[in-house]
Every structure is written in C-alpha cells, then in structure tokens.
Write a protein that binds this DNA or RNA. Structure first.
Lengths: 195, 195, 195, 195
DNA sequence: TATGAATGAGTTTTCATTCAT
DNA sequence: AATGAATGAAAACTCATTCAT
C-alpha cells in the first residue's frame, strides 16, 4: 500500500523535518506536514502507513544515508585512530550542516512514542556496528587497550559525541562544534591507549 | 497551595514512579496515579499544581536526594580520581537499586513536554556542577590533562555514564552494571591523564 | 439544620456580595466566600443548605430590606405621582450607594442557575406588587390612564428603571444616576396621563 | 479555519437553539448539540472555534437577520410614530414565531460567560441604533419631546419591550403578546409626546 | 493517484459538599 | 459549633485516520 519512493515520498519526509524542527514534535500534526509538503492530508497515507511511519522512515532515510556516507569515508582510511577521527569529524560536520535534522534527531524525536524509539534503536545499531568495528580494529592493531568490553568503549564514544551534539543544539548552535573534533579525538585515544 | 510535605505528597510521587515505570509515560493518567496512591483524583491537586508539577517534583525529589547523597559521599574523599570512582559507583548503584526510578528518569521522562524537560535540565545542573568540580580538582592536582575544556570532559563523563545506564535499562537490567564501575573509571582516568 | 440568624450568617452574606462583585459569579467559589467571611468552608453549611441557598438568601436579605425601606417611605406620601417619583429616587439612590450590591443583582446573579433565578423572581414579586399598587392608585385617582393593563404599565416602569441601572453599572458607574430621577418620572407620568 | 457557510454551519446553529431551549444553557453540552445536528463532535470544530463561538454566532446570525428584517420594514415607513409601532410589532411577532429562539435569547444566553455576554452586547448595538434613529426622527418631526436624552428614551423603549418578552417567555407563552402591540405603542407615544 | 471533509476516542482539572475530629 | 482535608463527578477539545468523490 505505502509506496516508499517518488518525489512526494521525499517531499513529505523533508516537510516533516522542517515542521518538527520549527514547531517541535508535539505540535507537528499530520495536516501541518501535508501543507508544508504541498499535498493533501490523505495523500500522506498513500506513502506512509501512519504518522509513526513518517517519523521512523524519516530517521531511517536521513540517518541511514548519513551512516552510508560515514561508512564509505572510513573505508578510504587504514588505521583505527584515523578512522575514529574521521567518524567524529563526519558526525559533527554532517549534523552541523543540517541544523533542522540535528534538532529533530537530537531533541524532538527523543520525545516520541516507545514504538518509534524502538525503531530508531534498530537503525542506530548500524552506526554502533561501525564504531564497534573501529574499536575492534584498534585493539587488533595493538593501539587500543584490550581490557575493556568493546561495547563499553563504544558507549563512551557514542555517548560523548551524542551528548556534545545535543548540548550544541540546545545552546542554539552558537559555537563551531566541528573545531572540537581534535579535542574529542585525543580524549578517546588517550583513554583507550594500550600500554 | 501545594503542600510539599506530608505522607500523601510522598505517596503520590511514589505512585507516579510506579505507574510511569509500569505503564509508560503516555499511559500514566492522573487517575491511575491517584488509585495507586490510594487517594481521590482531586486530592492530587491539593498537593500539586497540575500533572506536570507531579513529574517535575518527582524528578526534583528523587534526583535531588540522589545528588545530595553523592555530594556528601564525595566530601569524605580527597583525591579527584577517588571522587570520580565514587561518583560512577554511586550513579550505577543508586539507580540499579531503584529500577522503577531508573526506567522513569532514563526513558519515560525523556518523552515529556518541553516544560518538564526544561525543569529537569535545571535540576541536572546541580549534578553537572558536581562533575565539573571533580574535573577541575583533578586538573589542579596535576593528574588530569589541562588542554581540554572542563565542560567537554564533563559531557564525556556524563554522556558515557548516562548512555550506559540507559542501555542497561533497555536491556531489561539483565546484567550487573555496578560491576562495570572500574572499567568506566579506568577509561576516564586514562583518557584524562596528564602527561 | 441551617440557622438563618447570627453574626456569621450576616458575615457570610456580606462576604458573598463582596466576592461576587469583585470576582464575578463564575469565580465566586464557596471557599473564597468562606475566606472573606473568616470562617471555615464547612461552617458555611451550618448556616446555608448549599451554595444556591447563599445566593438566594443574599438576594432575599438585601433586596428584601430594600423593598421594606421603599414600602415605608411610600407610606409617608399620599399621591400616586409622588410615590412614583419616590420609588424611582429610592431605586436609583439605594443601589448607587451599594455598588457591590448593584453589580451583583444587576449583572452577576443574572448568570445564575434556573433555580436561583426562579427564587429571585419570587422575591421580586414583592416589589412588583408595590409598583402595581402605585399604578392602581394612580388610575383610581384619575391621573393615570385606565385603558392599559396594570401589569403592562408595571413592566414598562420596572423594565425601564432596571435597564437604566444595568446600563449605569456596565458603564462603571461613571455618571450620577440619581440625577436622572425627574427625567424618568416625567417620562412615566406623561406616558400614563389620563386624558 | 471556521467556515461560516454551508448546510452544516446552519444545522449546528439550529441544533444549538433547540438543545439550549430544551435543556437550558447549563446542560447544553457540545456533544448534545452535535447529536442534534447529526454531525460528529469534532465536526463542530471545523465550523466554530470553540463552544463560545457557537453561542456568539448563534446570536449574531439569528438576531442579526432579525435586525435586518426590522431595518428593511422600517425603511418602508415615513413617520417616526409608525416606525415605532412597526418595531414593537416586529419584535413581538418575530420572537413569538420563534419560541425556541425567544427562550434562548431572553433567558438562557443571559446566564452565559462574560465574553459571550460582551459579544451579545456588541451585536445589540445595531438594534439600539435603530431605536435611537426612530427617537431622533420623532424629535425632529416635533412629535416627541426634546427634553430627554435619546439614550434614556431608548432604554425605556427597549427595557419595556424586553421585560415584556421575558415575562411572556417565563409564563410559558400562554398569551398572545403580539396583540399587546398597540398598548405598548400608545404608552410610548404618550410618554414621549411633545407639548 | 489525489483530495479534504468528516469522524470520535480519550484525559485533565475544578469545586461543591461531607464528615471525622 | 467549628474545622478543613478529602472526595469524585462531569465536559470541552484535538488530531490521526478514513473514504466517497
């Protein structure tokens, strides 16, 4: 029933990002999204199963392509340390280039229903795997300590980056977060250095 | 208007924690909380201005006393490194002893209205200050590196702990998170070590 | 059960007038009246059957004594024309001396429940009778026309005075309504003059 | 937002008149009005901003068209005296042909909230102006006395008619009020006659 | 494919009244 | 006589979703 392609599909997702960023999750009614996308309310339901499906699809589409970009960039690098720097850099730069998206993913979607949050979690696994791979590689290379569970390290890396981006969004993006890349990188690398 | 003391005040807050943990934020109606607290619906409004006030008060009461406990324990210790270990330990142990509360603060209240989230943020500042103080002390002692902004370090520490607790709650608390204290501590200390 | 005498009985009625005049009928809660009267909420119910009973009693007490005053003053006069002038004068002067009461009776109590309005109507009959008597006397004296039903004439007199007082209250009592006495009197007398 | 035309708009207003006349203002729930109009509760809010808006619109629509009718009829007459008779006649006949509407406007809407009562007052100004014009014309023609303020005279005329209609409604419309037209007319004309 | 008018379920809050003390 | 803490019933409004056109 729901077609996951087409101009209108994209238009609706982009409209959803705009509307949620501007009005907040709780004031992002389907009719508002439809108006922003220049389609009728009913048309939404030709492309999405329900409202939750818009939000889940939004996250999958936008973050999925973000994860792909990250994945491809990392493949061009060899060493775990360099990959880690690139991951931090991409995370900061891609989200700071898409402020609406940053607001939506860091703030607004976190107020959503359990179902949506669950689906977001599923999508995030893809990214967690990318980080896990860097950490594992670092341990194999002998540059990262091997006495800690990979998932603990990944949680530190992701938790720290995520907290930093959220703080940046909440401060109305008043400073240049990309320039913090090296600070965070050295923090992680020192914390993980094998001895 | 709102009497902030008395058995019923506490009973209502405890009932709110239970109901939200069991049914989720979006299904925690005032009437359900009243029934759990063994009071009439209207009685709630003798003690709280409105539903938001219950949730904000809940957070302030429960986390406030958690922050106090942490503060007092840290005062008994001298070195920043030890204080950091104690902070991690208390955070993990106090929340794992109060699973309902952990569910409410880590998952459910994060779906709440902007007003509530804002008030929660205000309360959290107290905790951020505690972490900032440890970090500052560590830098003064010469054991923590001084080339990073204190707030960045604090975000790493808080973000990592918070992410870990949330993951533990989401995994239905199937493992012993307190036993991870030393892992996280060594991660932070190594990441921060001055050279 | 309900004692219709005593200091507190009067205090509660006076408090009701004040509270309704200041806050309006819809914001005149029993607890507010109790506080103004310096008694406990429950005490109200030792003197009045319920909230309606306060309002009905208020009207009976205040307007009843107003009607008595009017009755006595009229008895001192002989001619219908003079009685009519005195009635208008007393109506205007007594209500303009009691602005709170004027607000309550002309505006606020008219928003009340059907039951209260019915009881008010019953009390008003006493006043209608006074006007009817003046009109009948005027017809007997041969100074008022006898081709109109007494009740129609009374409705004109009362409707006109009532409309005038209400307009004066709604204009925030910005002009001296007592000085309009003669205008209204001549209007009525000319309208009623027998030929 | 609120579409002020269409069958449903009229149906809802007519339903509101019926429901309020039958059950009284305080028991006229939105859901009852919706059922009477054969629409869903939510449909009401496609045509009206809120419940108050239904009542205000009801008054504007019904009385507005009544005022228009009156205005047009009066334009066909020349002399102030004749216009005054026509005004009384129309007021009595139009309201006695619409008993539900008479109940609503004379009794029920007078118990409504200050906001509604204020809006009703605004609409009534249109009618007051019509009466004022008749009185002014009568004074210019030299048939009405010129020693009284036009607004005082208007208040007498309106207050008297209004009081008469209200009494008729309260007496369960047991007599023919239209037949009283001439009585009231002669009362006014004599009261106002210039000498 | 696309429309948009219509639907109807679901919840917080107030406040008159009671009754144990 | 007096208190005041506790009670619980009652109603407006929003918005995701449908379906006839």
């Amino acid at each position: 029933m729901a077609r996951k392609t087409g101009d209108k599909y994209q238009a609706i997702i982009d409209a959803a990002v705009k509307v949620i960023a501007r009005h907040g999750y709780h004031h992002a009614q389907v009719s508002k999204i439809a108006r922003e996308a220049n389609v009728a309310d009913g048309t939404i339901y030709l492309y999405f199963k329900n409202k939750d499906d818009i939000l889940i699809s939004l996250f999958k589409e936008k973050m999925g392509s973000f994860f792909e970009t990250t994945h491809h960039h990392l493949n061009e690098l060899d060493r775990a340390e360099d990959k880690l720097r690139e991951l931090i850099h991409l995370h900061f730069s891609l989200l700071s280039e898409n402020r609406d998206l940053a607001i939506v993913t860091q703030i607004e979607l976190r107020q959503s229903d359990p179902d949506i949050r669950y689906q977001i979690g599923v999508t995030m696994k893809r990214y967690f795997q990318i980080i896990d791979d860097i950490v594992s590689q670092g341990i194999e290379e002998g540059v990262f300590r091997d006495d800690l569970d990979v998932r603990i390290i990944r949680r530190m890396i992701f938790g720290t980056i995520d907290e930093a981006i959220t703080a940046w969004v909440m401060k109305d993006q008043k400073y240049d977060i990309v320039s913090l890349t090296d600070s965070f990188h050295s923090l992680f690398v020192n914390g993980l250095r094998a001895r």
